[in-house]
Design a binder for these strands. Structure first.
Lengths: 106, 106
DNA sequence: ATGAACGGTAAGAGTAAACTTACGGATGGT
DNA sequence: ACCATCCGTAAGTTTACTCTTACCGTTCAT
């Protein structure tokens, strides 16, 4: 009863789309490259990319006949903030661990 | 092709389950109470609770005929850590904002 | 100009998730 | 003992997501 458009969770609920995001985190890539790294057809990748683009998580630009997709920082951080808001509410009873993200990545 | 059992995202991908978690964050509640606050039938709530319980996000204990559900801190933080791992990888190109969670909740 | 590579979209099939109603078991009160 | 409340599960329906194949437009090279 709730399309993934309605909330941010659903967009990344699909493991293929998460894989695409992680792929693009390494470097911007064309559709053909993404499809080669995935076990699904190229049109299926295009459909996932459309969803990711519509939700503002990725963007693309043309390079010849290729469309180079890359992450959209604004959309990604916005979604992460949205999820953080959920976690803060969900874990409000356990205040201690909310700040566990003081990870100074050594 | 991926049941929500396979990963943590799917479990909270359903907005009803997120609402249940937020409800339980306020206080432990019986099934009947949760169902009263939701637009779906009581059995549907039971089914969601089963999924949440199987994934370790909630637990319950009996009180007379009632089953009082409450959050499971261990499972919740484990899932949040899992999501954090994704975000760290996805946003690794934007190191600055990864530590934005230095929020000392004023 | 012709052909090839790239990619978006339409149409349709298959599958899984989420809901409902119906039923049965367990506990507690009278 | 009997009835009411609470709740889990089974069965079945509906919805919507994901995928595939097929087709078409665009861009570049020869």
């Amino acid at each position: 009863m709730v399309t993934y458009q309605d909330d941010g969770w659903g967009v990344l609920g699909d493991p293929t789309r998460r894989t695409i995001v992680l792929q693009l985190a390494q470097r911007p890539q064309a559709v053909v490259e993404l499809a080669a790294a995935l076990p699904i057809s190229r049109p299926a990748v295009s459909q996932h990319l459309k969803i990711l683009k519509d939700s503002g998580l990725v963007a693309e630009h043309a390079e010849g006949t290729r469309r180079i997709y890359h992450l959209n920082e604004v959309g990604l951080t916005a979604l992460r903030d949205q999820l953080d808001a959920f976690w803060n509410r969900a874990l409000s009873g356990y205040q201690d661990i909310i700040d566990k993200s003081t990870k100074e990545t050594p």
